[in-house]
Amino acid sequence: MILGELLGTPVHDAAGHRVGLVVDVRFLLPSGERGPARVHGVLVGDRRRVPFLGFERSGARSPWPVAQWLRRGNAGAFLVRWADVVEVRPDRVVLARGARRWSTDLPERSA
């Protein structure tokens, strides 16, 4: 599977409703940075917006106008853990029933 083919794929919930697009994929790199990086989850959003230097995923609140502008562009985006993804097809990614939506913010030590 090529990552670029997954990015931009529509995401549907278990009921078949479209909830957004795959805007990014989050990997978990083992401690010590040795060993295979595994997919941790997919970031789902409304638009194919390229992240702006990670600002909108860092939890930064200042400078206020910039933070507000970038947060608004990222509004509605969420992270779904890979365990909650039940199917990946070329035309859609299907989430499990009751898939939990997490914030797209990166934990402090990873940002």
């Binding site: 990552l3 990015l7 805007v23 990014d24 994929v25 989050r26 990997f27 978990l28 790199l29 083992p30 401690s31 940075e33 990086a37 941790h40 970031l43 390229v50 992240p51 990670g54 995923r57 985006a77 969420f78 992270l79 939990r100 939506r101 997490w102 914030s103 797209t104 913010d105 990166l106 934990p107 402090e108 030590r109 990873s110």
Partner: peptide
Amino acid sequence: PAAPYPLDEPSTGRLLDARL
């Protein structure tokens, strides 16, 4: 707003976003 990410997960390792 989506729930904040649980800081105790993952227990080990570093998270990377592909595009970022």
